[in-house]
Simulated assay, not measured.
Amino acid sequence: MSEFRVPAVDIGPYVEPEQFTDADRAAVARAMDEACSTVGFVQVLGHGVPPSVIAGLADAADAFFGLDPDAKRAYQLPPDVNRGYTPPKSESLSLSLGVESASKMNDFFEAFNVGTAASEFPGLDLPESDYSENVWPSAQFRASVWAYYAEAGRVAHVLTRVFADALGLPSDFFEQFTDHSLDVMRMNNYALPPGTVDLDGDLTGMGEHTDYGIVTVLWADQVAGLQVLGADGAWHDVRPADGALLVNLGDLTAQWTNDRWRSTLHRVKPPIVDGTIERRRSAAYFHDGNVDALIETISTCVDEDHPAAYRPVTVGEHINAKLRGSRAGVLYTDSDRNARRVRAARS
């Protein structure tokens, strides 16, 4: 059996197209197709995000998560509002797959969410339940976080152009589905004060799940914890390479491609050193698509041997059903495909 490996793809020819040739971009598209077909996770290099912007994001997250619990809870919103602060053990990502957890809300990470708001598109009358306004602990936090948010969004849009070329589609194919994309960024913290959680064998940083939308752009510390379910049915540790952003596909891309590309199951198991959870931080930018976009399997991914495996669904329908699982504790029952994969891995 070959060793599990997350492929690295340099997207520089798409970030700075004037410095490269069409042949360079074609090579990137081929490499992306291979990575998305076999693993569903990619180490993306050449993304162009300035190190100073990433450092600003990390500092802002550290400052917020370093506040006392009561100060952080001042920014906690109801579960149906995907913004603001999430305390430890208030979510269970495995429920978004249709997998019951032993203790329903048992993921011990804490998080802070920001996202695209309806006020950014005043002429579209977007639902505020999906495009909620953000809450900001401070002006400095807002400036630093939003600077990275803009960069991650740029990378996500570049990636969809790579995807289009890799799938043999018009280069702007995804733009009609993402011009008011329902994007959210979640900053995660896995290092909690002593006594906040019990260090036992079943401790879960973030339960097994697939991401919901089109593509996720992840910045993370080079600390153990993230695990990806391989084609061999085993969980494999993954850490970002030097200078890389980790990118993985979401459910909607798997549906678009009729599972030609993989929406890969992943989880976070806490790195414990001498009885203490080692600090691990990440920021996941979820590029999910327009709330009203209808996702149907791409015709080039359907043939007699591979009939369409999914029913058409809007982005909003899909995302909200998954969020009701992770944030509100309502078991997701639309499909048992990924639940079967989780149970097989557990066994």
Rank of each mutant, 00 (worst) to 15 (best):
R341C: 02
A55Q: 14
L192M: 10
H306G: 10
A152G: 10
R260A: 13
I277E: 04
S326M: 09
D172A: 14
L126F: 02
S96Y: 06
R154A: 11
R142S: 10
Q227T: 01
P270G: 07
A231G: 15
D259M: 06
F177I: 02
P13H: 05
V9I: 14
Y285C: 11
R5L: 14
L182K: 01
D183M: 00
T21F: 03
H287G: 09
P88F: 05
R83Y: 03
R260E: 14
G46R: 05
L331S: 07
Y332D: 02
S2G: 08
S181E: 06
A26G: 14
E3Q: 15
D10P: 08
N258L: 03
T86C: 12
W146S: 15
L199S: 07
D232R: 07
G66I: 09
P240M: 06
M187Y: 00
A293Q: 14
F20K: 06
T86W: 02
T276H: 14
A55Y: 08
E34T: 12
D10I: 09
P17H: 08
V215D: 01
A191N: 06
D172I: 04
Y212A: 08
Y85I: 07
A60P: 12
R73Y: 04
G153C: 09
G12K: 14
A147D: 14
L203P: 04
F65A: 11
E91H: 02
A117Q: 13
Q227I: 01
L249R: 01
E208K: 03
V114F: 02
V330E: 13
D183E: 10
G56S: 12
N134S: 08
R239W: 01
L77S: 08
R327C: 05
D59G: 11
R83Q: 01
R154T: 10
V268T: 04
D198P: 00
R267V: 05
R327W: 10
Y75A: 01
N189V: 01
A143S: 14
I214P: 01
I214V: 12
V215T: 05
